[in-house]
Write a protein that binds this DNA or RNA. Structure first.
Lengths: 210, 210
DNA sequence: GTCTATAGAGGGATAGAC
DNA sequence: GTCTATCCCTCTATAGAC
């Protein structure tokens, strides 16, 4: 992997983070990378292809780096706390922002769809694996498929990230609501076996598992 | 309100819907409106100002038109079902898409922030008012502030809308997870008074209301 | 592999005729 | 209020020197 390639990949992330999908052009990316603009096309063929590659690499690297923290989470509440920490840390590093911007761009640019989906899938799989672990024995696990739940969590995360730009206080309180919901499911887990079984039966009646 | 002004407002929404924030230029908006490009600047001064006005107007009109349906909702489950219907209907009309695109643009364009926040606030207030009504007596209401919950719901909606573009099946299953969560809170409501009070006490202990 | 230069399209915004 | 014409900018992408 040549130096310039890596500089461009990093520059693409920096440009997406600092200027958004509307401002991530070959020129701004090259400027962020400190290389010549024509090299975008020499190494990647097009701006979209570069963004796609950068998006993939950044997501893989980020998910990898957070994996130990995810593994050490022992409760749903901790998972939400980790989510908030991730959100706070990424506000400066900006990787969730990048994903949100690429996702917004993908809505009307087919060439970005694959990149957005693959990057998001990496996060979703990681979240799903941990939900599976944390929801073991919880009545909720009997109705909510962890894969679906993980997708909802990831999508909510993206939504809150965008909302953060329009109303930081509102985004904080949205997070607080999620934390409260997670507390609810934890309490379900703390219920005595009798109450838990009663609730489980009720859930099953309400929503038979497919 | 002159005809041309309205044509431009409608054209802006159409352009945002069909081409996204990256493709909503004075020229594409004017083309969608069927008027001359210079009129964008005569009537609104700048493209951003037009988008801002269009965003405000569209959100107000949409919230207004859905208000009777919101009022007729009698359960949390119905609210989620209405959300899905709204999502499906708006996929063609595209007003959630528009909001998501403006929100994504606002992240790096200060001139769009106010428009995004105001449009979103209209939806949030409507959702909050209905949650307040539907959660009355539910133990969840003792811990989760309806305003915060409404913000989380709105943000999740935006996130799922964007996710839909990258993975339609995934977005559907994310919605299914939200439906399952809503079923959970309904069951809480159906619990006998003893169990409900026990749960309520537990929730309060876990998260004292501010 | 890296650079300069440039083609060719599209963008925001304005001047000035009508 | 509406139109044409235009300025000047940025964009993607390529050609060709080094």
């Amino acid at each position: 992997m040549s130096d310039t390639r890596q500089l461009l990949l990093d520059g693409a992330i920096a440009a997406l983070r600092d200027k958004g999908i509307t401002g991530a052009s070959a020129r701004t990316i090259a400027a962020a990378a400190g290389v010549n603009q024509a090299l975008v096309f020499y190494h990647f063929g097009s701006v979209d292809a570069l963004i796609q590659a950068a998006c993939r690499e950044a997501a893989a690297q980020q998910v990898e780096s957070y994996r130990p923290l995810f593994r050490s989470v022992a409760s749903l509440h901790d998972l939400v706390v980790l989510g908030q920490r991730l959100h706070a840390e990424q506000r400066s590093a900006g990787n969730v922002t990048v994903l949100a911007q690429v996702l917004a761009g993908a809505r009307h640019n087919p060439r970005l769809v694959a990149a957005a989906r693959e990057a998001l899938t990496l996060w979703i799989d990681e979240i799903a694996a941990n939900l599976e672990r944390l929801l073991e024995g919880n009545p909720l696990a009997q109705v909510a498929d962890t894969g679906c739940l993980a997708r909802a969590v990831a999508a909510s995360f993206i939504g809150i990230e965008l909302y953060e730009g329009a109303d930081p206080d509102g985004a904080r309180s949205a997070f607080a609501a999620l934390e409260q919901l997670s507390a609810l499911t934890e309490i379900l887990d703390d219920l005595g076996p009798v109450a838990r079984n009663a609730l489980g039966a009720r859930l099953r009646r309400h929503h038979p598992r497919p």
